[in-house]
Computed example of a mutant assay.
Amino acid sequence: MAQTVRVNVPRTILDWVISIGAEDRLGEEQRQNIDAWKQGTKRPTVSQLHDISDKLHVPFGYFFMDEPIDDTPPVYAKRTVGSQQPQGHPSRDLVDTIDQMTAIQDWARQDRIDNEGTRLEQVGSRTINDDSNLIAEDIRRALKIDEHWYRKSDLHKPAKAFKLLRERAEGTGILIMQNGVVGNNASRPLDPKEFRAFALIDPYAPLIFINKTDEPETARLFSLVHELAHVWLGADELYNDTALPTGITRLEQVCNEVATAILLPDEDFLEAWQSIPNDTTLDERMKELKKRFPVSHTALALRALKHKLISQETFQKCNQAAQTWSEETENKQGSPDFYDTELSRFDSRFLERLASSVDKGGTTYLDAYRLMGITGDTFTKLMKRAVS
């Protein structure tokens, strides 16, 4: 009979692995075993460590390290949560998502160097000392849209606006990714309270990731444009502002100003407000404005407050009613099929380049599988859909 192999894991390593992992996923028996291992009355088996690794979403190899390490992604230091600085450890869901996006960015960077060799001129082309309207103008020029782009073809609808701006941004060489789970694991949804989006800056392959669980669609649209401003400013960020865009640093304030200038220009907003009869109820006024701009009701109310068109008390009422208004106006769409969902997660240009590289032998199937988190026939079918 084969003997069960048990290993020594120092208490310091056990404490560290548990502190950075999803501890709430551990069962009572696993907790008891861990206590016994810490006390030295028992030693874990390899199988038990594998199980706990899976539960905590922490790499199995961490149990065999000589000492704890800090695997917190650098971008986590750029995180803003409401009006507070970042504290504690990031979730393993966030860590794993950033790790996957970093691997994709590294591949895309090398692919661009190998095939085109040029840096993207927009990365870091502006500073926080530049006028936010000039930065917004630069972005519109790069995306080939005018100041009133949202007036055309139902682009006041946030889903259509997001699709257009994403496609245009991808066309400039910026990688735009989005997902609502870790990889393809539906049991690991991303928490919008932890982050709404992030930007990883690189002169060859800047990458923006949008948390698809962030609701409503206007929130994801604002995040996209906000992160585009970060690309122009050349600054990494993990974005998690509150519903009210009041960044705690000058950098965040500028990015919010740029996003607002693109989605809700002052002059156009004031013109729209003044075109609505004065005796129109607040509810009807907000619904009418929502038909013209791809932003949230809260953003509209905030802009009205800024221009002293409403009082602070009225703004608070608008903010409280915003959820109800959003539910009435958000488009309800059917569920897309599996491959449409997968395609939506990845930058279209990245998929095309990866498919080409695999076809030419520049990237192995194994490396492509690792980048995508998809294998076999699923990968093949997805690549065919991507280039069709």
Rank of each mutant, 00 (worst) to 15 (best):
residue 1 M to E: 11
residue 5 V to P: 00
residue 7 V to W: 10
residue 9 V to S: 05
residue 14 L to I: 14
residue 15 D to A: 07
residue 20 I to E: 06
residue 26 L to F: 11
residue 29 E to I: 02
residue 30 Q to Y: 00
residue 31 R to W: 10
residue 32 Q to M: 06
residue 36 A to C: 05
residue 36 A to E: 09
residue 39 Q to F: 00
residue 45 T to F: 00
residue 45 T to V: 03
residue 46 V to W: 14
residue 46 V to E: 12
residue 47 S to W: 05
residue 54 D to V: 03
residue 56 L to P: 06
residue 58 V to D: 04
residue 62 Y to C: 01
residue 69 I to C: 06
residue 70 D to R: 02
residue 73 P to T: 03
residue 75 V to T: 07
residue 76 Y to C: 07
residue 77 A to E: 15
residue 79 R to F: 13
residue 89 H to E: 14
residue 90 P to D: 04
residue 94 L to I: 06
residue 94 L to V: 04
residue 102 T to M: 13
residue 103 A to F: 06
residue 108 A to Q: 15
residue 113 I to E: 14
residue 114 D to I: 10
residue 116 E to Y: 13
residue 125 S to W: 15
residue 128 I to R: 09
residue 131 D to I: 05
residue 141 R to M: 08
residue 142 A to T: 02
residue 158 P to F: 06
residue 158 P to T: 04
residue 163 K to P: 05
residue 164 L to T: 12
residue 164 L to K: 15
residue 165 L to F: 09
residue 165 L to N: 03
residue 165 L to E: 04
residue 172 T to I: 10
residue 174 I to P: 02
residue 176 I to R: 11
residue 179 N to M: 05
residue 180 G to K: 02
residue 180 G to A: 06
residue 189 P to N: 02
residue 189 P to K: 02
residue 192 P to N: 08
residue 193 K to M: 14
residue 197 A to S: 14
residue 202 D to T: 01
residue 202 D to Q: 02
residue 204 Y to R: 01
residue 216 P to F: 11
residue 218 T to A: 12
residue 220 R to D: 11
residue 224 L to G: 02
residue 226 H to K: 09
residue 228 L to V: 03
residue 229 A to G: 05
residue 233 L to C: 06
residue 234 G to Q: 04
residue 247 G to Y: 14
residue 247 G to N: 11
residue 257 E to T: 06
residue 259 A to W: 15
residue 264 L to P: 05
residue 272 A to N: 04
residue 276 I to G: 07
residue 277 P to N: 01
residue 279 D to M: 03
residue 284 E to H: 10
residue 285 R to A: 00
residue 287 K to I: 07
residue 295 V to F: 04
residue 299 A to K: 12
residue 310 I to P: 15
residue 313 E to F: 13
residue 313 E to D: 14
residue 315 F to P: 14
residue 315 F to G: 05
residue 321 A to L: 08
residue 322 A to S: 15
residue 323 Q to A: 12
residue 326 S to E: 13
residue 328 E to S: 09
residue 328 E to L: 11
residue 329 T to I: 15
residue 332 K to A: 03
residue 334 G to I: 09
residue 341 T to H: 11
residue 345 R to L: 09
residue 345 R to E: 15
residue 347 D to F: 05
residue 349 R to P: 00
residue 355 A to K: 03
residue 356 S to H: 13
residue 357 S to A: 15
residue 357 S to Y: 15
residue 360 K to W: 08
residue 361 G to C: 08
residue 361 G to H: 11
residue 361 G to V: 11
residue 364 T to N: 01
residue 369 Y to I: 06
residue 369 Y to E: 15
residue 380 T to V: 10
residue 385 R to N: 07
residue 386 A to L: 10
residue 386 A to W: 03
residue 387 V to N: 04
